[in-house]
C-alpha cells in the first residue's frame, strides 16, 4: 500500500506531556481552539472479544498434530486444507514481513524486525508509524506458532501510533501481511484481549502449534508514575484463505 498522501485524522496531535506542562500552557494563545478535537465518547480501554486459539501448547514440540483441534467451537474454522498458491505454509522460512494492513480499520504500517532490549523486554520501533516483527519467533507464513507484530499506541509527543487502530477492529476483519518477496499472507481477526503488562499470556510468543498472527500495542489505564500504560492490547488473527 502506498504511503498515505496525508496523515489521517487520528494522527492529530492531542494533549501531550505532563499535567504541569499543560496547565502552564493553559493561558497561551487560544487561536488554535478550533483545531482541538475534543474526545468524542470514551476511547479508553476497548472491549475484548473472541477466543484465542491455544495452539495446542503444553504438549511440547509435537503440538502441531493437535493444533487444529484446538480451535474453539463456535469460532470460524481455519481453512486448513491444502496449499493455496503463494500463501501456502511451508516449512521454509519465507521472506520477512514488510507491511501490515487492516483496510477496514484504516491501518497500514511498515514492518521492521525487532528483538529484545537490554532489559529483556521486547524492542518496539521508535517510530509509532511502524510495527516491529519479533524476529526471534515465527514469521508470518511460517507453518507453526505465533508471529508477533508490536507497535506503539502513541508516542510521547502525543501522536497516535498506527496500531492505535487496533482499538477499532472487529472480529472478522481481514489482515494482510505483505512480505519482502511480494507475497501476502492473509489473516482474519478472531480475538482481542486486554491484559496487564506483567501478565503476558504464554501463547503470545509460542513457537509451535497453530499458525496465528498476534498484534500487540498498549492499553489503558495510563499511569505516568508507573511507566505509562499498564496493560497490553493483544489482537489474534488466524490464517484465512487468501
Amino acid at each position: 500500500m502506498p504511503d498515505r498522501p496525508q496523515q489521517r485524522a487520528k494522527w492529530r496531535t492531542v494533549a501531550a506531556g505532563s499535567v504541569w506542562s499543560a496547565v502552564a500552557a493553559g493561558s497561551a494563545a487560544a487561536a488554535v481552539t478550533a483545531l482541538l478535537l475534543f474526545p468524542s465518547g470514551d476511547p479508553g480501554p476497548p472491549a475484548g472479544f473472541g477466543q484465542v486459539p491455544d495452539g495446542g501448547r503444553g504438549t511440547g514440540t509435537a503440538a502441531s498434530a493437535s493444533a487444529r483441534a484446538a480451535t474453539p467451537p463456535g469460532q470460524k474454522p481455519v481453512p486448513s486444507t491444502g496449499p493455496t498458491g503463494q500463501n501456502s505454509t511451508t516449512r521454509a522460512q519465507g521472506a520477512p514481513p514488510v507491511r501490515v494492513v487492516i483496510s477496514r480499520a484504516d491501518l497500514s504500517a511498515a514492518v521492521v524486525p525487532v528483538g529484545v532490549r537490554d532489559d529483556g523486554r521486547a524492542e518496539v520501533p521508535t517510530d509509532p508509524a511502524q510495527a516491529g516483527w519479533y524476529r526471534f519467533g515465527p514469521a508470518p507464513g511460517d507453518a507453526h506458532g505465533s508471529a508477533v507484530l508490536i507497535g506503539h499506541v502513541d508516542s510521547r509527543t502525543g501522536e497516535l501510533g498506527e496500531l492505535a487502530a487496533l482499538y477499532d477492529i472487529r472480529a472478522g476483519d481481514r489482515v494482510d501481511v505483505q512480505r519482502g518477496d511480494d507475497t501476502t499472507i492473509a489473516y482474519e481477526i478472531v480475538a482481542r484481549r486486554i491484559v496487564k503488562k506483567d501478565r503476558m499470556p504464554a501463547d503470545v510468543f509460542r513457537r509451535d502449534g497453530e499458525p496465528v498472527l498476534t498484534l500487540i500495542t498498549c492499553a489503558p489505564p495510563y499511569d505516568p508514575d508507573r511507566g505509562g500504560y499498564q496493560s497490553n492490547l493483544i489482537v489474534t488473527a488466524v490464517r484465512s484463505a487468501s
Binding site: I150, D154, M200, I216, G228
Partner: peptide, 9 residues
C-alpha cells in the same frame, strides 16, 4: 514485556 505506549493520548 511489551512497552508500546508513550504519551497516554
Amino acid at each position: 514485556g511489551v512497552d508500546a505506549g508513550g504519551s497516554g493520548a
